[in-house]
Design a protein around this nucleic acid. Sequence first.
DNA 1: TGCGGGTATGTCGGAACTGACTTAGGCAGC
DNA 2: GCTGCCTAAGTCAGTTCCGACATACCCGCA
Lengths: 104, 104
Amino acid sequence: MKVSKQKALEKKGWVVGSAKDFLGLSAEEQAYIELRLKLAEGLKVQRKRRGLSQTALAESMKSSQSRVAKMEAGDPTVSLDLLVKSLLALGTSSRDLASIIAGR
Amino acid sequence: MKVSKQKALEKKGWVVGSAKDFLGLSAEEQAYIELRLKLAEGLKVQRKRRGLSQTALAESMKSSQSRVAKMEAGDPTVSLDLLVKSLLALGTSSRDLASIIAGR
DNA sequence: TGCGGGTATGTCGGAACTGACTTAGGCAGC
DNA sequence: GCTGCCTAAGTCAGTTCCGACATACCCGCA
């Protein structure tokens, strides 16, 4: 992983690395974070594609605008759970979900 | 959704439906639960494929045997987050993850 | 310039989830 | 029988995440 990328993640609030591997992320950490970023990006794309504002999406899924903003920003206080629920609330099929995750 | 299937889910502890739709799950609820079940099943398969016990997997990802058992059982107190982290801890690639989700 | 919709960011109390622990059941081999 | 390993299921205190709210920023339009 490039240092610049890690810096960007840290700026978002990720505590990256650990005592045993302080120069980078473990494979799982990295895969996990990249998965989140893919979903965050996918969410933003899907929402805009449907012409919804963050507020409108938040209401339709009984969340709040601020949460939606954090989701799309890749904020670490947002769980994968919520990210996926948002995509499902937008009507994303499991096939589409899979392709977002696979990265295509 | 078949009533028998819903019964089975309720037995697992899912509170299914709501005041406004007490005869079934909304599309999102259903998609969400089925996604969890796919991941739970995928986890069990991947773990066995690698010849690990629940205890061994738990240790490798700093969780506990009981959590792993609940994950595989589709227990509702386990988050999607943990399910996905477990799969990643087993070395599942995002491609494999995607195919588990797509259901193939 | 002021206004309004959309988005970003921070905080907080309450809800949900977590790991650890315990106990129980199944099933091999002795 | 009993011993060991694996898995299931329950409980609980501590942590994390949630929605709600407040606030600030940006941009287009009058």
